[in-house]
Design a protein around this nucleic acid. Structure first.
Lengths: 170, 170
DNA sequence: TCGTCAAGTTCACGGGCAGGAAACGTCGGC
DNA sequence: GCCGACGTTTCCTGCCCGTGAACTTGACGA
């Protein structure tokens, strides 16, 4: 499990996104800043300047804690291969670009407009093209343990399916 | 929430007991010892010798994390997604606005009039619309651990369900 | 004790609309 | 030719949201 380093407080938004996606992280706290309010258990911090040994120790502690109860972070390489832990799936160009946009804001809502722009930088085709690609992408992502949730009239949200983070209706 | 200080590795058994009882704790790690393997989220450590400021900071962080663990604060983002700890649920427009108003005064009473204004800035529909939306919102919030309590002839109040803050009748 | 009113709760229904899904056709590479 | 990627059309499902009405509960006074 990789621990992500985040500068604090400069990258506070990035930290929120990582927290939402349950990515373990180590905050590098500016020498003059206040220590961050904890948002969950997958986070630790060290104050700068710090020696490398401290940083490594803290990072590995967070990593071990995370390994107890968290999913691997999906990773999309430049060849359109999406890897989630040991599992992977190839993605065709359009779906790869959509996935890239969703991964940039993993765990947060991405609007249909933003997705359209990501999928078709040269201008979007018909309105339903996005719907269909989301459908196809869903079927492709399910086997690797990812799910696309719709937030009606707001957009879509990518999350790990193994954890029941969002509440489903009966 | 009080944080217990534990010497490491001398008091490792005490640490295990505290972990078992889910008591938040701060390990004071001997200068020559290895950092402890994390067992849960209610623990942090500092290496001795450490200045008092560091110890206080770490202790208060663990304390706040422990408080969050018991009762995370709800947060409504701009995309109509309500997050409570790791759980979340999408909210449709009207209910998002109602929730926003309730969150602004979390734990305190919000009058029906104020809720109406928040939910329908352009003017409220029929009188019953608010009732129905409160009902729907209740059902949506219950799974994420929030509850809307009625204060008769005063208004409504949003609170965390996990903590029994108000007294319920049998 | 009882009746009455006001306040809240809950259900069922329907219109409107966003999103889901199937089927089909085209294009290009192997 | 065969197959996969991609776009469009078309239809359908499900959600959102308001309304009306039945029911419950609490307050108050005769």
């Amino acid at each position: 499990m990789d621990v992500v380093f985040v500068r604090w407080p400069q990258e506070s938004e990035r930290r929120d996104r990582l927290a939402q996606a349950e990515v373990p992280r180590l905050l590098l706290v500016d020498s003059t800043a206040r220590a961050p309010d904890p948002v969950d258990c997958l986070e630790d911090w060290v104050r700068l300047p710090a020696n490398d040994e401290d940083v490594r120790l803290r990072a590995s502690c967070v990593a071990r804690r995370a390994a107890l109860h968290v999913d691997p972070l999906p990773d999309l390489d430049d060849d359109g291969v999406l890897r989630v832990g040991a599992r992977w799936t190839p993605l065709p160009p359009v779906e790869a670009r959509l996935t890239e946009a969703l991964l940039e804001r993993f765990g947060a809502v991405v609007s249909r407009e933003a997705l359209s722009r990501a999928g078709w930088p040269e201008g979007a085709p018909g309105r339903n093209a996005l719907d269909v690609h989301v459908l196809r992408l869903r079927r492709r992502l399910a086997p690797v343990g990812l799910g696309i949730r719709t937030v009606r009239s707001r957009g879509y949200l990518l999350e790990s399916e193994s954890r029941q983070l969002s509440v489903r209706q009966a």
